[in-house]
Amino acid sequence: RDLEAFAERFKQRRIKLGVTQADVGSALANLKIPGVGSLSQSTICRFESLTLSHNNMIALKPILQAWLEEAE
């Protein structure tokens, strides 16, 4: 599925960039996405391991996609 593929790709890119889950969570606040502050390390972990609810995964995907584009 698309979400699973993105979560795996996100994790691989994050590791390759040398960024921790906690770093991603705090960096999201710097993107200044309306309504989005920082996220906890555990939320990033649960996204990568696909243990969040489907609706949460869908909500987080564009936010994490934006971070990934900014980081690369």
Rank of each mutant, 00 (worst) to 15 (best):
R1M: 06
D2T: 04
D2L: 03
D2H: 04
D2P: 07
L3M: 14
L3A: 00
L3Q: 05
L3D: 03
L3E: 03
L3G: 00
L3K: 00
L3Y: 08
E4Q: 10
E4T: 13
E4H: 10
E4S: 10
A5S: 09
A5Q: 12
A5T: 08
A5W: 04
A7I: 12
A7L: 00
A7N: 01
A7G: 03
E8Q: 11
R9G: 12
R9V: 10
R9E: 15
R9A: 11
F10A: 00
F10W: 01
F10P: 00
F10D: 01
F10I: 03
K11T: 09
K11C: 03
Q12H: 14
Q12W: 07
R13S: 13
R13N: 05
R13W: 06
R13G: 12
R13P: 00
R13M: 10
R13K: 15
R14G: 00
R14K: 03
R14T: 02
R14M: 02
I15T: 14
I15C: 05
I15F: 06
I15Y: 04
I15H: 04
I15N: 04
K16R: 13
K16V: 10
K16T: 13
K16E: 14
K16N: 03
L17V: 03
L17D: 02
L17T: 07
L17P: 00
L17Q: 04
G18R: 05
G18V: 01
G18L: 03
G18N: 01
G18S: 03
V19T: 06
V19A: 14
V19I: 09
T20M: 06
T20R: 04
T20Q: 03
T20I: 00
T20F: 00
T20V: 00
Q21E: 07
A22Y: 06
A22P: 04
A22D: 07
A22L: 08
A22R: 10
A22Q: 12
D23C: 02
D23Q: 14
D23R: 08
D23A: 09
D23L: 07
D23V: 05
D23I: 01
V24P: 00
V24E: 01
V24F: 03
V24S: 01
V24R: 02
V24I: 10
G25Q: 08
G25N: 03
G25A: 13
G25C: 15
G25R: 07
S26Q: 12
S26P: 02
S26R: 14
A27T: 05
A27M: 08
A27G: 05
A27P: 00
A27K: 11
A27N: 06
A27Q: 14
L28W: 03
L28E: 03
L28V: 10
A29K: 14
A29C: 10
N30R: 09
N30S: 12
N30W: 06
N30G: 11
L31S: 07
L31W: 14
L31Q: 14
L31F: 13
L31D: 04
L31A: 05
K32C: 09
K32G: 08
K32A: 10
I33P: 06
I33N: 05
I33G: 10
I33F: 08
I33W: 05
P34G: 11
P34A: 07
P34Q: 07
P34D: 08
P34I: 05
P34N: 04
P34E: 12
P34H: 11
P34V: 06
G35P: 02
G35L: 06
G35M: 01
G35S: 08
V36E: 10
V36H: 07
V36F: 09
V36A: 09
V36Y: 12
V36Q: 10
V36M: 08
G37L: 08
G37N: 06
G37H: 15
G37C: 10
G37A: 11
S38A: 13
S38G: 11
S38I: 10
S38H: 15
S38M: 13
S38L: 12
S38E: 10
S38F: 10
L39V: 14
L39W: 05
L39G: 04
L39S: 07
L39H: 01
L39Q: 02
S40G: 14
S40H: 08
S40Q: 07
S40L: 02
S40V: 05
Q41I: 07
Q41G: 14
Q41R: 12
S42M: 04
S42I: 07
S42T: 12
S42E: 15
S42L: 09
S42G: 11
S42Q: 11
S42F: 04
T43S: 06
T43L: 12
T43Y: 00
I44C: 03
C45R: 13
C45E: 15
C45V: 13
C45D: 10
C45F: 12
C45M: 07
C45I: 07
C45A: 14
R46H: 10
R46P: 00
R46K: 14
R46F: 08
R46L: 08
R46M: 10
R46V: 01
R46W: 03
F47K: 00
F47I: 02
F47W: 01
E48P: 01
E48G: 03
E48Q: 01
S49Q: 13
S49L: 07
S49I: 00
S49C: 07
L50C: 12
L50F: 11
L50I: 06
L50W: 01
T51A: 12
T51G: 09
T51L: 07
T51E: 12
T51S: 14
T51D: 07
T51V: 06
L52S: 01
L52G: 02
S53H: 05
S53L: 02
S53C: 04
S53F: 01
H54S: 10
H54N: 10
H54D: 09
H54Q: 14
H54P: 11
N55E: 09
N55G: 13
N55H: 06
N56Q: 15
N56T: 13
N56D: 15
N56L: 15
M57R: 01
M57L: 09
M57K: 01
M57E: 03
M57I: 06
I58L: 14
I58R: 15
I58G: 07
I58D: 03
I58Y: 04
I58H: 08
I58T: 08
I58M: 10
A59T: 12
A59E: 09
A59G: 09
A59L: 11
A59R: 12
L60A: 10
L60F: 07
L60E: 01
L60S: 02
L60M: 12
K61T: 13
K61R: 14
K61W: 10
K61P: 01
P62K: 02
I63Q: 04
I63L: 08
I63T: 11
I63N: 03
L64I: 05
L64G: 01
L64Q: 02
L64W: 00
L64N: 01
L64D: 03
L64M: 06
L64F: 05
Q65T: 09
Q65I: 04
Q65E: 14
Q65P: 04
Q65G: 11
A66C: 05
A66I: 09
A66F: 08
L68G: 02
L68D: 03
L68K: 04
L68F: 08
E69C: 12
E69P: 00
E69Y: 06
E69I: 07
E69L: 11
E70W: 04
E70C: 11
E70H: 03
E70M: 06
E70S: 11
A71E: 07
A71V: 07
E72L: 01
